[in-house]
Design a protein around this nucleic acid. Sequence first.
DNA 1: AAGTTGTTCAACCGCGAAGTG
DNA 2: GCACTTCGCGGTTGAACAACT
Length: 278
Amino acid sequence: MAKDGKTSSALRKGAWSEEEDSRLRRSMEKYGVIKWCDVPSKAGLNRCRKSCRLRWLNYLSPSIKRGRFEDDEEDLIIRLHKLLGNRWSLIAGRLPGRTANDIKNHWNTYLSKKIITEEKSWNPKTIAKGTTSVKPREKKREFEIIKPQPRTISMTWSWSKDQPEKGEFEIIKPQPWTIPVNWSWLKDQPVHRGHFQDKSGINIADPLPSSANNNVSREESATIIPEKLDDVFFGIDDMTVGEMRNNFEVGNTGGNGDELFFLQEDAGWAAFLLDLNL
DNA sequence: AAGTTGTTCAACCGCGAAGTG
DNA sequence: GCACTTCGCGGTTGAACAACT
């Protein structure tokens, strides 16, 4: 069999008929999520698996939200696009019911133009030039995308009930690192770029850098006194470590797998673990 | 009314990553 | 470790429709 289901020219392509839609819908309702390569035969469709997958995920799935994008959705897309670039699936993961394809289309047909218009409206230089069109090179310069490179940061926080007088807080990273952090998708919070910051009760080797640029550049481990949890500030909507303990449920995962939030209670200890791949 | 241009969005394509034997 | 398959993603295309001339 050829790669990606390109088995023969007999496979149907192009727009889906109502009959095909209902066959696929019935199959998905009956069998649920199975291997996509099995879907065409189970549904009795003369379509390749990719076509079936796309039709389901972008159109037929009952979780899809239809209709125009709300203002707050557009605002979130713009903010996330600044942070993530054209990683549409990641952006879609923060907008329940919206597909990556929907968001990509909306961006390409509307939002990118809207941003250019707004940018020009407050950019005196652009106004002075009186330009009415943005050349590709200018566009790239004015709207440079922050596209973080893939990396993993592990951070653990734990305390022992047996030794309640002292807990541990540790950021593990082989080398010093600098990243912008966005926490908003974790608890449906409005978008804020987070930063790690201490208020008091955190004993670190060196003073924290200024958080003015919302970046972190440090390699630290620190000790937190459990009684001071509510004084240790994480920079997540001003959330403290203590509040984070209360706000994240056991085994709660955030986003679509790019980050993992996990808080667990055990007989003798509790731990908070965050893995970020940005 | 007819032709042209612009817009929208479903669908396809190619590629890299992940999974499997 | 390798070859092959499957999955999922982003870029692009093209049909359908709307707006304009």
